[in-house]
Design a protein around this nucleic acid. Structure first.
Lengths: 132, 132
DNA sequence: CTTGACCTTCCAGCGCGCTGGAAGGTCTAG
DNA sequence: CTAGACCTTCCAGCGCGCTGGAAGGTCAAG
């Protein structure tokens, strides 16, 4: 299968597939006489895995680490499980941060409705945004 | 005031202050005979504003747009208010996305606890992460 | 006069996941 | 033979907010 077919089957672009090869996510395939990449069917599965893992919010580096374990002949279950938990923690942290920012913005929005532009001197630049 | 003093007073680095000048956030100050930047006191206020606005989650481009209005002699209240509301919407969107990813990860984590590594064949790479 | 703290400019890179374009090679259909 | 669809490599850039380093100038204290 040539790169264009693999792209069509996986929904990726040829650019992305070559990028994944450079990034160590997809092994370099054999070449045809003309120098074209010639992929085996299992490349489709491999790229599907990459897509699934990305959908779960894993980074390419993490996906690479899972594939490395698999390519070593081991089951990556334990590693995958700990990556999942790390990401859950990370998401909780980011949601807390967003929540705090949201609160701050809500307070600023409230202040904005009760601010008279005439009261806002040149020196301050913007009283709405001043530290609360 | 020289750049190092301004940095000390605002908690920024001299690098960042020069970067802000290049970015159009802080006007280029006059220079001493030796070619050193010589800041007026109001630069402290200006950088404090930048910090406050960043704390509210505004981007430097947005902050620049607020400053441009102020530098034009107008009160930026209306603009600031609409930026705040845009960011609130943005945060709501991102929180919804994070929440969805979180749900997906939780489901994967549950699956991980009930998965036997022995059932995970080489071909699949990782059954835990398969599309649900 | 020398040291050393501070300043200057300019250029480059970070992390992340691609994406774009140039310049050229290969292969098939008509 | 030619068109054009596809492929190759290589180099560069995106957005964001800085950060690092090199190579050199300025100035006050000792």
């Amino acid at each position: 299968m040539r790169i264009g077919d693999l792209a069509a089957r996986t929904g990726l672009t040829t650019k992305t597939i070559r990028f994944y090869e450079d990034s160590g996510l997809l092994p370099a395939p054999p070449r045809t006489r003309g120098g074209y990449r010639d992929y085996p069917d299992r490349s489709v599965t491999r790229l599907a895995f990459v897509r699934d893992a990305q959908r779960a919010g894993l980074t390419l580096a993490e996906i690479r680490s899972i594939l490395a374990i698999r390519d070593d002949g081991h089951a990556p279950c334990t590693h995958v499980s700990s990556l999942i938990h790390e990401h859950l923690d990370d998401i909780d942290k980011r949601m807390a941060e967003l929540s705090a920012t949201r609160e701050a913005l809500r307070a600023l929005a409230d202040r904005a409705t009760t601010t008279d532009p005439a009261d806002c001197g040149q020196a301050d630049i913007c009283t709405i945004l001043k530290r609360m």
